[in-house]
């Protein structure tokens, strides 16, 4: 590269091992990775497009320092092997003033094949790698991410992408051959009509005119049928696009349903929380009893002792009263009330003395209050209060429950906010409007189909008429005419074979791409349940699960599978391609997580004979080399050293430094 982008003066990159294997070019953002890819594309096609497909102005490609030194010259030289032959491209531009037009005027291109300069180099390069298929060989991580969006972008972008894919697969070769043969057949027919006129004779002239008229009518019909088919194709693409949009809206409907579910869950949780709060308030109302509990406990104990003491005294007094009665009776009857022994004077005196003592004892016991229900009642009241005392575990349990409900409600609210933000700006009427539009377009498509069929029938009738006429003309014994008729019939036969080959080859290639994409996908997929890929007519992709469920894009895009699926398709296109070229990937793993990134890295060596990875240290980390198992043949690093010197290229040392 000479003065290209951040590369001041001459810089050379050499891919080792004859270019075969994996080649790493490391550099952070803004160090000059993308400029290397752009330099190659500029060398090939003389222009570079940015990520939005806009052409980058030549004045933006010149190195700053060169510009400051008034050197208005930049260029690229590429050495490569094509079909086993060494080739070299040298593209330069030099301007007298720093002006886009001047650079375009000052551009020169040389192509050497096997050491010899080749005429018409632009056309030769386009044959080697058509510009519209280069997007599958020189791409960046953004393209992987946007692949499906490209399909949905609009009908034009979709048609362009579809054409590019079919071109990679080689379908247009059959189309070109068919069209070439059609052109040749027309030439033969014109020649035949011309000769017939020359042969003279009014009958012959009349036949020739009639034949020419029929041919003109057939040409017009072909044109009309082509236009109608084109209209129908545009309409069918629009229908397919609208149906995909409608499928995406299924997601919106699911979100709306989820929103209702969340709101209901929040309501249920709020109810449960309120119930627990009421329970807690009731408990707190009884909390004063906890404060009184120690005092009540002491009082109960005291009441129990006093009650027991009173009961003991009462029992003693009752026994003393009984004893006094017995003594009184014994004294009165002079006979012992317990054993019936007759008592003498001495014994009677002893009994009287004992009676006096007993009376004194009874008097003493009477001074203590007799047992009453007051003690019992007080004790019961306090015991009941003690039963109401809260345990700290009960309160903690309720607080824990309330916290759980709070957490659940907060979580649901957060999800609700998320769902609401996704639903913002969604036009609720759009699905029904789209359905109506699809129905209207399908009706129109049906009408066009009918019209095409009618025109084809008309063409069939004309063809019958013409072949009848051809037979008449064929009967005219003219050698040259006979020869031309044979050539026309022969050309027609060949044309029909190519016509049938177009759809057969397209279907077979699509099946091969689908099969290869699935093989790649299985090596780098994130979930084992994702079984295989299916490619639709527009080259959009669906994942089929092991249970044979078809997952549309809206159902798997959230799982980060999008880049993996696009990479599988691009890998398959490269494997099935009619064009052999190296693959340059600019920051391809930027959005992949570690596991995905490792799987893709392990797969890469199988993807193409030559792969150049332009990576940042964030996506290709220290130790990642192990996944490429000795396939790395070149390892370079880039560094932007400042505006004056620009970017430099140097071999990477151990540890990725």
């Amino acid at each position: 590269m000479l003065n290209f982008g951040p590369y001041y003066r001459n810089h050379e990159i050499s891919f080792q091992n004859d270019g075969l294997g994996i080649h790493l070019i490391r550099g952070g953002n803004g160090q000059g990775k993308t400029s290397i890819q752009r330099a190659i594309l500029w060398g090939l096609y003389g222009e570079v497009k940015d990520r939005r497909g806009e052409t980058i102005r030549p004045t933006s490609l010149l190195n700053h320092t060169a510009f400051n030194e008034d050197i208005y010259q930049f260029g690229v030289q590429i050495d490569f092997i094509h079909d086993g032959v060494n080739c070299r491209i040298i593209r330069r531009t030099q301007a007298i003033r720093h002006h886009d037009k001047k650079y375009e005027e000052g551009m020169t291109l040389e192509l050497y094949v096997d050491g010899r300069i080749v005429p018409e180099p632009e056309r030769q390069i386009q044959r080697m790698l058509p510009p519209d298929v280069s997007r599958f060989y020189f791409f960046d991580g953004e393209m992987l991410r946007d692949y499906e969006e490209l399909l949905e972008d609009d009908s034009r972008a979709m048609a362009l992408l579809k054409d590019s894919i079919e071109r990679v697969l080689g379908v247009p070769y059959f189309k070109m051959a068919r069209n070439d043969l059609e052109g040749i057949k027309r030439k033969f027919e014109r020649e035949r009509a011309r000769i017939m006129r020359q042969l003279g004779g009014s009958d012959l002239e009349e036949l020739a005119e009639l034949q020419q008229m029929l041919q003109d009518e057939l040409d017009d019909l072909d044109k009309t049928i082509n236009e109608l088919e084109k209209q129908k194709e545009i309409l069918d693409n629009k229908i397919a696009e609208d149906k995909r949009k409608l499928a995406d809206m299924k997601e919106v409907r699911e979100l709306a349903t989820r929103r209702l579910e969340i709101e209901k869950d929040i309501e249920i949780n709020e109810g449960k929380k309120d119930k627990k709060i009421a329970e807690r308030n009731t408990m707190i109302e009884k909390l004063y009893k906890n404060v009184l509990a120690p005092i009540a406990s002491t009082l109960i104990e005291k009441f129990e002792i006093q009650s027991q003491q009173a009961l003991d005294m009462y029992n003693q007094k009752q026994r003393a009263l009984e004893h006094a009665d017995k003594l009184k009776k014994g004294i009165k009857e002079s006979k012992c009330s317990y054993c019936g022994t007759v008592l003498d004077e001495k014994k009677l005196k002893e009994l009287e003395a004992e009676l006096e003592e007993t009376k004194i004892r009874i008097e003493e016991l009477t001074q203590i209050p007799e047992p009453n229900l007051e003690y019992e009642h007080s004790k019961n009241t306090l015991t009941k209060m003690m039963d109401d005392v809260l345990s700290s575990e009960d309160l903690e349990e309720i607080d824990k429950k309330i916290n759980e409900y709070d957490y659940e409600i907060a979580k649901l609210n957060s999800e609700l906010e998320n769902v609401k933000s996704k639903l913002e700006g969604v036009d609720a009427d759009e699905p029904s409007r789209l359905e109506l539009q699809i129905r209207t377009n399908e009706k129109e498509s049906g009408r066009l189909s009918g019209k095409i069929e009618a025109k084809k029938e008309e063409k069939l009738k004309l063809l019958e008429e013409k072949s009848e006429l051809d037979r008449k003309i064929d009967a005219i014994p003219q050698d040259q005419l006979k020869k031309l008729n044979k050539r026309i019939i022969f050309t027609d036969s060949i044309m029909r074979i190519f016509e049938r080959a177009i759809s057969t080859f397209r279907e077979e290639q699509k099946a091969a791409v689908e099969k290869t994409a699935t093989e790649i996908f299985r090596e780098i997929r994130s979930k084992e349940e994702f079984d295989r890929l299916k490619i639709n007519d527009q080259y959009g992709l669906s994942i089929i699960t092991v249970h044979n469920t078809i997952l549309d894009r809206s159902e798997w895009r959230s799982s980060g599978e999008e880049q993996i699926v696009a990479l599988s398709l691009i890998g398959a296109l490269n494997k099935c391609a009619q064009v052999k070229a190296p693959i340059f990937m600019d920051t391809p793993f930027g959005r992949l997580d570690v596991t995905h990134g490792e799987r893709v890295l392990k797969y890469l060596p199988k993807m193409s004979d030559q792969i150049v990875l332009l990576v940042t240290d964030r996506e290709f980390r220290e130790g990642d080399e192990i996944h490429l198992a000795g396939k790395i043949k070149t390892d370079l690093s880039l560094k932007y050293t400042g505006e004056k010197e620009g970017s430099i290229i140097y071999p990477t040392t151990a540890g990725g430094e």
Binding site: M176, A177, K187, K486, R487, I497
Partner: peptide, 22 residues
């Protein structure tokens, strides 16, 4: 014979067909 190619290729195909027929 099955020729297998933005055309004026047509001349070359025509030559082949002419050689085959006539």
């Amino acid at each position: 014979l099955l020729i297998l190619v933005d055309r004026g290729c047509q001349e070359q195909i025509m030559t082949i067909i002419n050689q085959r027929v006539g």
